[in-house]
Design a protein around this nucleic acid. Structure first.
Lengths: 282, 282
DNA sequence: CTGCAATGTATATGATGTACACAGTAGCCG
DNA sequence: CGGCTACTGTGTACATCATATACATTGCAG
């Protein structure tokens, strides 16, 4: 995970203590070696919590269940973690383990940035519970930073100012997270519907009956929602049976954003010669 | 569970009942006029819940507190609402009340779409708790649909296929929601820090000490995060004292997306003549 | 008038996050 | 070496939460 634990030597510059939660995240929580040797570790706790979340979803992660999985009592966790929120933050950071050894292949900034977005999407899909996180603060976690740094690197040759690069990274990241969230929500809703149908009996398969498309057709009447109605009945909507074209959808969105980034880069490159690219009135 | 109890006679056009939650949302929950007259209504409940959420945040919304605000017992709410999740969905829908009488001013699709994004952002900011909603399913609420319809309308003259229009709407919407969430999270975190500082004593003002920028400077070391480090110390980061330039940031992101949309439109317009616009490899 | 569906309530249950007090452990200082 | 003390794990307690269930009450439909 990160394991950084400064061994007692106090760094000269420690004027104010870091905000709660941040310190642990960055391995700056002190640990005087006085009492009994700890039988547990933050890493073990976080790992157990993540295993639980992977297997049963974020709502299955309670202090009690994590503790039980480790063979300790509920309260013992609080010797390592200040609150459940802190644990969640740590899980969030840990979910991105491995970023530091990532490289994006691609020759152009565009290919690299696209790859970056894909990597993020993959990471999220690997731990679907990420999309359900409360996220009470801006992601000031080391692995998030590493990932941002990686994204910034893909824009190295573009001549954009740092703040703009950061903005573009954030933009792409926002989209990725949102899209993953929706895909995941839909999947979960479908699963829940299936489970409910199975409980009341009836043929388990083919019984759900409601796809997104059929629901839309049922609800959206032509007069109030003419455009939606047209789309709903046009058959243009891929019915997304297994999430296969969901990924394609996502990539289309990414490409659109990349077009926007390209426009921004062009605008900065041809700063004075007033390029007539896609960008119009600003 | 849902209260709809068809009195044995099957209405001609109701082959399968709608999924739970959706029916109430679209006003399709039956109500046989048999028992005592209801002293409560779904609307009243939702209104009370929203008032609570506006005032104290979404975490203050519990069945007990909503009921107390209305002068009823906790369990009485369940006569009108199947679960808390359902109530949340209704709140989500109600937060967009008034969309049906909205018009977007602007001559071009670009101006209109930009206005659309701004309206959404305003709606979210007016009810900050929206960003904290669990959102267990795709937003199949009437007001959401109305809003989507409005967005689609702004792309009327662009010649995009319906599915592409929808994708663009979704893209912009994703970004708006994510951005609002981050801004709101940051604000809440700052408020929490302030409150914590006030509780432990010390001068309430000027004491938090940690802004995003100073934190970044403290945590991000030059070797591991060279690019971030450079940005953090460049002073390029607006320190966002009151959220004033947050709005400007948001608009910049929107404009970037709109550039991407423009590229897409151009690609569709010059379908055969292979335009050399910003769009590159697809 | 009578029956039954619908309403509001009281009570109960099992989770949940976390405060607090306690007992045992082991490094450090004398 | 002995004791102080910081630190560990535990047990108990509490407030809050969503919700199940049983019940008394109400008032339209027959």
């Amino acid at each position: 995970m990160d394991g950084t634990r400064r061994p007692s030597e106090a760094p000269p510059a420690a004027p104010r203590p870091l905000p709660p939660g941040i310190d642990l995240l960055w391995g700056r929580r002190a640990r005087g070696g006085r009492g009994p040797r700890p039988g547990l570790s933050v890493d073990a706790i976080v790992t157990a919590a993540i295993e639980l979340a992977d297997a049963e979803g974020l709502e299955a992660v309670s202090m009690a269940r994590v503790a039980k999985a480790l063979g300790f009592t509920t309260m013992s966790l609080y010797r390592y973690v200040a609150s459940k929120d802190e644990l969640l933050t740590l899980m969030w950071n840990a979910s991105a383990v491995g970023v530091e050894s990532l490289t994006l292949d691609g020759a152009t900034w565009r290919e690299k940035l696209r790859a970056w977005a894909l990597v993020q999407r993959d990471m999220i899909d690997r731990h679907a519970w990420i999309t359900q996180m409360p996220m009470a603060a801006p992601p000031l976690a080391p692995n998030s930073m590493t990932f941002v740094e990686l994204g910034l690197a893909s824009l190295d040759d573009t001549g954009l100012p740092g703040a703009e690069k950061l903005r573009m990274i954030g933009l792409l990241s926002s989209y990725t997270l949102s899209e993953a969230r929706m895909a995941n929500d839909a999947a979960r809703a479908a699963a829940a519907a299936m489970a409910a149908a199975a409980e009341t009996g009836e043929t388990p398969a083919a019984s759900p009956g409601w796809t997104f498309e059929t629901l839309l057709r049922e609800l959206v009447d032509e007069r109030t929602y003419p455009r939606l109605h047209a789309i709903a009945w046009s058959g243009e909507i891929g019915d997304d049976p297994s999430g296969f074209d969901e990924r394609a959808e996502f990539l289309l969105g990414v490409d659109t954003i990349l077009d926007g980034v390209a426009a921004l880069i062009d605008r900065y490159r041809g700063a004075s010669d007033d390029g007539q690219e896609t960008a119009s009135a600003r």
